[in-house]
């Protein structure tokens, strides 16, 4: 089966000698296209490190990482920045929109970075904002948007470069439960309609019912994996 993201025996250590800390200990992970995948775990479990490795921000100490079937660290020197802007979308806890750009310009930025400009870019940007139901806020600055609107614009930005995978870092943490659920359902819709794999790092157990698969990390290792079919319908799958 083809995986969008495939990590094998990922190890990440920081420091040396007595100060050496192993954050990820041979972690395996595989995400299919269109899958909504949640990563949970307590603080210090290695979620952020994993997200940084999957986002090509930091390199693993050992192990293999494939993105869209391409081996990223196979000895060849790759332009990780370029891979990031072409293949990955990011959604953050606080939207992290660029404050001096309007909603439309925030969505256009990733397009411009991959060379899509002019009318084509504007049209695509507006389509995305329309798809996320914030087209009427296109010319507003982030500070003029509500938290939910900001997160929708951030999702539109993450989709702009048509990534095969979106990494979402606590996308509902700054929202109330109703808006959080709405965002999760939106991500669910995106993954199923667009075939984009979405990896969500979250502490929010209420959202688990919306995802296809959940892994739980403790001390850099996957201790539990639950798929939609194995999860009880009303109860949270994993609790801290």
């Amino acid at each position: 089966m083809e995986y969008v993201v495939q990590a094998e025996k990922l190890v990440k250590t920081y420091g040396e000698g007595h100060n050496r800390v192993e954050v990820l200990k041979g972690l395996d992970l595989a995400v299919r296209p269109g899958e909504l995948f949640a990563i949970m775990g307590p603080s210090g479990s290695g979620k952020t490190t994993l997200l940084n490795i999957l986002g090509l921000v930091i390199e693993p100490t050992e192990g293999r990482l494939r993105l869209g079937g391409e081996d990223i660290y196979n000895g060849k020197r790759r332009d990780l920045q370029r891979l990031r802007r072409e293949r990955i979308g990011f959604i953050f806890q606080f939207a992290n929109l660029i404050p001096f750009l309007t909603a439309r310009e925030n969505v256009l930025l990733p397009l411009e970075l991959i060379g899509v400009r002019g009318r084509q870019a504007v049209q695509k940007g507006m389509e995305l904002l329309d798809y996320l139901e914030v087209a009427d806020r296109a010319e507003h600055l982030p500070e003029q948007l509500s938290g939910g609107e900001r997160q929708r614009v951030a999702i539109a930005r993450a989709l702009a470069n048509e990534p095969r995978v979106i990494l979402a870092d606590e996308p509902t943490a700054s929202l109330d439960s109703e808006r959080g659920l709405s965002v999760m359902r939106l991500l669910r819709k995106l993954s199923s309609e667009r075939g984009t794999a979405i990896l969500v790092v979250t502490h929010d157990t209420r959202m688990i019912g919306e995802v296809d698969r959940v892994i739980r990390l403790i001390d850099g290792q996957v201790v539990d994996e639950v798929t939609e079919s194995t999860a009880p319908s009303e109860q949270p799958v994993i609790q801290h």
Partner: peptide, 13 residues
């Protein structure tokens, strides 16, 4: 600083 970090993460040269 935060915006620069976001720009870097988005792959801005």
């Amino acid at each position: 600083v935060k915006e620069i970090a976001v720009l870097k993460l988005l792959g801005t040269p």
